[in-house]
Structures are given as C-alpha cells and as structure tokens.
Design a protein around this nucleic acid. Sequence first.
DNA 1: AGGCGTGCTTAGGTCTCCAA
DNA 2: TTGGAGACCTAAGCACGCCT
Length: 312
Amino acid sequence: MDPKFNGEWSAFEITMVKSLIASHNANNNYADGTNQKHNNIMNQLQAWFPLKEKRQVIKLYSELVVEMTMQAGQSGNQSMVAINNLVNGNYGTPVEHPTMDNMDMSLASLTGKKPEAMRMVEEAPQQQVIIPQQERRHKRLLWTTEEHRQFLRGLHVYGHGDWKNISRHFVTTKTPVQVSSHAQKYFLRVERTTEKQRFSINDISLNDATPWVHNNSSTRETLAFAGSAYNPNGHGSSSELATMNNLAQAWSPFLYSAGQASSSQATSWISQQMGASSAALTLEGDGSQMAWTGDQQGDFLPEQSMDIDNMY
DNA sequence: AGGCGTGCTTAGGTCTCCAA
DNA sequence: TTGGAGACCTAAGCACGCCT
C-alpha cells in the first residue's frame, strides 16, 4: 500500500474501502450510471468513518479508484476520466467559490481539474426518492435487502431512535420518517420470533451468511434467526465513544466471517480485539476527529479476501 | 375471501433552541 | 428562568399487494 496513506488510514480501513469500491464496480444495477454509484459509495464511506473528515474520505476514495483502475490494466487516461467523473461531475454540485481549501487542492492535483470547477457543496445531495403523494399511495417502494442491512448497520451505530442520522448516513434512499416506520415494523417482527410467520425482509439480520431472496413467494415456515440484529444496549447512544463502540459492533459480523460464528461470538471477538472498553481506542487529533490508530485493525484481517456483498 | 407483511400517514408527546 | 416555536420520535391505524 502506498505509504502516503499511512498517516491517516490504517491498512484495515484501506482494505475496507477497496472492497466497497470493488463491490460497487461489480454492481451494474445503477440506472443513472456512476452518479448514483459514487454517491452510494461516498455515503457508505462517510457512514463507516463518521469521525474522518470528509476531505480525507474523498481523498482516499479518489486515490484508491485511480490505483484500482491502474491495477485493472486500464490506461492512465481512462483512470483520469474515471476519477474526474467520480469526484467532480458525479458527486456534489460544482459551484464557483472564491477560496480553495486543501481538499480542493488535493482533488485538483489528482484530477487535473481547474480549481474553480472542483469546489463542492458541503453536503452531498441526498438521494431521497421523491414521489408524488398521490402516486405513492399506489406505488409502494419495498425495502430492499441492502436497504434493510444498511438500516441495521445504522441501528448499531446510532442506536434506536436516531432515525435522522440513520437515514442520512446509512439508508440514504429513505427519509427519517420512512426509517422510523420501518423500524417500528421491524421491532414488532423481532418480538414475534417464536411464531410461525411468512418470510419478511425484517428476518434478515446483519449476520446472515446467505441473504434471503426476497421474492414474496415463500410459504409459512418457522424462521430461524441468525442472531439478534437489534442491540438494546445501543439505545440512545450518542456520544462519540459510544458511537465508536457501536461502530465496532456493526463491524463485528464483517470482521468475523459470516457463517463461522454466532453473533455473540462475533461481538466477543471484536471486543477482544478492540478492547472491551473504549479505552482501547487510541484517539488522534484534537478531539473532534478520532481515528483507529496503528494497524491493529489490519492485523486482524481475515486471511481470505473480503467480499462486502457477502459479509453480512 | 381472508390473513399477513409492508409502507405510509397522522395525532400526540417529548425535546431542543431561542428570545424575552 | 420561562414560554413559544419548531423539530423529532412514537404509537396507532389505514391501505395496498401477495399468498393461502
């Protein structure tokens, strides 16, 4: 790995980002091309690393895209075109601005774009699905398995009740109200685990090794839950340390290869690796920014390559 | 036709912010 | 400190679509 990343990102984090990019590159189901893909990736990265500065995330993402493109055998020119599309035209709205911050300069140096065109708005546009109310009554948008998983991840990180942040950072295609509504039905479903029920998307947990195929065609069956995706201890957690702990919980199924351990085992494992208390997390920066230091996380990477799509 | 899962709407309660 | 306004969350109910 390029040593220039070492100061800000651990090998573990870099591998995570690479896997995410690869998984999205392999996904051709983007109706509007790279715009949605890029926004999804950026939203995902910001959700994964809420304590990183946005410019850091963008910078790492940009450089990894170039690196991965190079490794894929594409020409450097193609890489520049790709990264131009990613960091400029397809993410945020370029607007004129009299000043340039470091992020802009960094991106400009990467892409060769004129600084004026590189200025991004502070917040990426949310991909809320806007449907006329009248039409919405008749066209319901079912939650996809991926959206549900994102919901569960957000639940782990932000805890119960923070639907706004879950919507903003995890399930970017749903409004907070929609997330809240989904959570309401989800918790009702979880409470009825002993009953015989039809398959529901709410039966999917973060730890399911083999995702359910949501085709609404399943028959009645006794559902086996791979593990409780809902952590009651995460209720109302809002502090940064709590967020970090919850983040670790959210990642535990990922770190602990799905299908090899139960949820409790995974939680135990990550607790051991990261320390049972937040004290094990070394904080960097001025307090407003925290980061996992060293390569502790990287040292614990599974031997096998990571597959984001199958890690939950 | 009825049951069930799901998404949406809405009323009511709670919390936060801010000006007086 | 207090009261109002706005934002947010929760609970409940309704409607839609699929399955038995």
